[in-house]
Amino acid sequence: MTKPILQVKNVKKYFPITGGILGKKIGDMKAVDGVSFHVNEGETLGIVGESGCGKSTTGRMLLRLIEPTDGSILFDNQDLRALPKKEMRKVRRNIQMIFQDPYASLNPRHTVEKILEEPLLVHGIGDATERKKKVSEMLEVVGLTSYHARRYPHQFSGGQRQRIGIARALMTNPKLIIADEPVSALDVSIQSQVLNLLKDLQKEFQLTYIFIAHDLGVVRHISDRVGVMYKGRMVELADAEKIYQNPLHPYTQQLLAAVPIPDPEYYQADAQAAIQFGTLPSPYVIDDSWMNIESERDDLVEVEPGHFVACRLK
């Protein structure tokens, strides 16, 4: 049942830093520095971290929209990094992406119909009438109507645009969807609508999600497991419950403390009860000096079944 659909091992992305008169390379910007995780079929893996921690870069590397510097990505037991460009494009039929900014991710000069039809065209799916049918079906699925197909993106609200973005990702019946902060550009009132839509779609189409977000609050509703990233590294990775009930890494604890509480007076007791900062089992210790200074960091260690934390043996 819990078969991993995606396995990521030690993926890195270094960007060169240039300087001087001739623009020579003088160093590396380690955007992602050795990240490993896996995603099981049908589950949702949340990846959380502050902006600039490398979570979006990681998401894009999975599709090779950004070429990794090192590491391996196994999707359906196929090493994506070994594939030639053309083969990689075919794989993208099975891995799709939902982008953060619904204003920027839709081509302003294409109608909704064209935007949704394009993935089918690219992968040679169906003939003209089938494609049209699928477009209007998919619009209904995401809560729009086929009447919207002839409009242009600028005629829609942010939430509606994001629905279009979701519909585009679903067009090719992918197995895995990488959602890169899909609700953070939306009004709070609309965020939950879109999140619920994503949840429903997961059930309906047996989708696997990687859900990238910058705060733990949003991820909570939707994730089965959660990974926390900081400065290009994964610092903690565990079942969602464990992350919220028993966060072990100090950075995770900081993030959790920052989650806003809707009505503090009402929730105070509950919240306090819910967040119990845990402590590591005895042989391990966390050296968190790297959070302020650049020092060697520890690898993930499985301190209890399914709960990984960056720490070392005492």
Partner: peptide, 20 residues
């Protein structure tokens, strides 16, 4: 632009992205 990134994510070829 993000919609170009999106086009690549969909699996489009360079030529199609250029012309469309």
């Amino acid at each position: 632009e993000e919609y170009i990134m999106a086009a690549r994510a969909v699996g489009m070829s360079d030529g199609r992205i250029l012309f469309h």
